[in-house]
Design a binder for these strands. Structure first.
Lengths: 228, 228
DNA sequence: ATCACAATGTGATAATTATCATATCAGCTT
DNA sequence: AAGCTGATATGATAATTATCACATTGTGAT
């Protein structure tokens, strides 16, 4: 937990703020805390009070929610440049989702009251913030719509391509989530996700090597993602 | 299409803005257009340029999107006090959804460039705006998650209860959408929605009289909504 | 190393939902 | 009034997905 004002040179800075006026810089430097989480650690608990505005500096997380039936549902995944403090922060005082690290993850937390105080005085800053929040929530909604259109095979293909294209930018990567978590994300059962991935392997679309996954036939996987 | 600055007394005003400073009042009075749409008319076309910030004054609308396969998906419904210009407006220059009136509807349109100009100078106004946008998109995401947890019967029950509780605040109302539109909203087929509603009728949960629908056994409908 | 436990993997069967076919009904036009 | 069209309605069947049962593999703790 350091506070060396390294954000002055942080790559993320430009994404959050149009200008970096004196009050915004002070907010970031004096009132931010950096925290590191290991894979599997919970960063935010559903139901806890929102005290900070949080964003990802590095790593990968999942946003999930416990249904009334006790079953978890995964809302979305987020990597740096995606916001984490998306939902709730400006419309609720309580988080209505849990954020869990899927990999070693570093977050920056800015005291929410102080951020709001700056935002009230600085429209430019607030507009930048709103742009980001709007963009990130849009992506969640549209992605969920996209998944809803597809059948089991298409949904599984969608998730694998999501990690390949959007997160790792490689056709070979270590899958950061369990089969069960894929199921929680796409709204199918764990068994069927496993079965589908086995089929992809048998069909020569995927190769597994421990946690490693390799997309052998990307074109076919994309076709499956579109047309089942 | 009138412009008599009636927003000064508009009930909605308090919801959008914390304070109504001079610049905000001028924005609303000088740069707003009021438009009326009949049931079925399209207010915003998917793919069109975003020129205005739009909100509902009265009526009811649906937000929908045409999938790559040509099939419509309904994202959400909105009534006054829900925003319409939720998604896209602050993160895109093009609407990625269509807004259609489900009933006679009046909207207010504020020139987006002028709104942005005010927002840049007025952090308080922008914060109020962000609160609203965040609240509305949160509701869409959580509602979709809720529907995803349920089976066919539960989803149909959910939609009927949504209109009863949230829109009409009555157990008897005129259903503003077709069976097909319920299907497009919950991701099931039209036939199965029709079948399910017929079952509800046969089971004494619902009564139909033309377009009118009456919830006879609300407790049972709620139970079906929760546990299928 | 062994035990315990969770994750992966696979098959058989049941339940759910989609598809296709066809009928009736309501509203609208001529 | 007749004819057209889209919405509602219903049944039979096919396709998809869930459930249950059980085997195997992997992983962490002692």
């Amino acid at each position: 937990m350091k506070n060396d004002c390294s954000c002055e040179h942080c790559k993320l800075r430009s994404l959050f703020f149009f200008h970096t006026s004196a009050d915004v810089l002070e907010l970031m430097c004096e009132n931010k805390t950096e925290r590191q989480y290991d894979k599997g650690e919970v960063i935010i608990w559903e139901g806890s009070e929102i005290k900070d505005f949080i964003y990802l500096k590095s790593g990968l997380v999942k946003l999930s929610r416990k249904g009334t039936d006790g079953k978890d549902q995964i809302i979305s995944f987020a990597k740096p440049f995606d916001f984490v403090s998306l939902l709730s922060v400006f419309s609720s005082s309580i988080y209505n989702y849990t954020v869990t690290a899927l990999d070693s993850t570093i977050i920056c937390a800015i005291d929410l009251e102080k951020l709001k105080a700056v935002a009230l005085k600085n429209g430019e800053f607030t507009m930048g913030l709103m742009n980001r929040v709007s963009e990130a929530t849009d992506r969640i909604i549209l992605n969920n719509l996209d998944i809803r259109r597809k059948n089991l095979k298409g949904r599984v293909a969608h998730v694998i391509l999501y990690f390949a294209h959007y997160v790792y930018k490689d056709t070979r990567f270590e899958l950061p989530i369990l089969r069960r978590e894929i199921a929680e994300y796409i709204g199918m059962t764990t068994e069927n996700v496993i079965r589908t991935m086995s089929e992809f392997r048998k069909d020569g679309i995927l190769k597994f090597d421990g946690k490693e996954i390799e997309i052998v036939n990307e074109r076919l996987l994309e076709s499956v993602s579109e047309h089942g």
